[in-house]
């Protein structure tokens, strides 16, 4: 792995059941919307090539199951993720509230090297609906409080902001990737240690 110049970005989409993760992924990759998706069980994924700053990058987008009982089983899919997309439904306040726990769970299970700077992106989906219940301001505030996570308001149905959001995702993941290349020169064992340190530090941070 260390020798490869990684042109592949692994992106994980997380969020409560029914917020539109599968639809967002399909809108981005296939440019279409359908209301005929089955609920995602386990995980599913699609790939798409994008151009970021004149560089061709393959995005491998993993779509996960949203029901709470599957939350702790995500670890298999999280490993090696370059970016994590957290989605909520702007018409359902509960899905917004769970963002925190999705984020924490991801950091615990994926244990990235540098949890403080791991790229997240928040998407507030379904803005095409009328019965909006989470204001843009509220979401924005939360994102700011979490180390300035980029926030987008999207509609998978009407393709609003989807392209833009995923471009940002790719760019941020790539930025992280360049930084991480430094680590790639180390053999694997050291990487493991780095992970462990990351986890410990995370534990301390959580306590405040």
């Amino acid at each position: 792995m260390s020798s490869r110049k990684k042109a592949l970005l692994k992106v994980i989409i997380l969020g409560d059941s029914g917020v539109g993760k599968t639809s967002l992924m399909n809108q981005f990759v296939n440019k279409k919307f359908s209301n005929q998706y089955k609920a995602t069980i386990g995980a599913d994924f699609l790939t798409k090539e994008v151009i970021v700053d004149d560089r061709i990058v393959t995005m491998q987008i993993w779509d996960t199951a949203g029901q709470e009982r599957f939350q702790s089983l995500g670890v298999a899919f999280y490993r090696g993720a370059d970016c994590c997309v957290l989605v909520f439904d702007v018409t359902a306040p509960n899905t917004f509230k769970s963002l925190e726990s999705w984020r924490d769970e991801f950091l615990i299970q994926a244990s990235p090297r540098d949890p403080d700077n791991f790229p997240f992106v928040i998407l507030g989906n379904k803005i095409d609906l009328d019965n909006r219940a989470v204001s843009a301001k509220r979401a924005q505030q939360w994102c700011q409080s979490k180390n300035d996570i980029p926030y987008f308001e999207t509609s998978a149905k009407e393709a609003v902001n989807v392209e833009l959001a995923f471009q940002t995702i790719a760019r941020n993941a790539l930025a992280q990737e360049t930084e991480a290349e430094l680590y790639n020169e180390f053999p694997d064992q050291i990487k493991l240690n780095a992970n462990d340190n990351g986890r410990n530090r995370d534990g301390d941070n959580c306590a405040c």
Binding site: I41, G42, L73
Partner: peptide
């Protein structure tokens, strides 16, 4: 590759339907 954990859930839980 860590594959077992990925396939077994969707294959087993939905009896291959999905």
């Amino acid at each position: 590759l860590g594959m077992m954990k990925m396939i077994s859930l969707s294959w087993f839980l939905t009896l291959f339907i999905s």
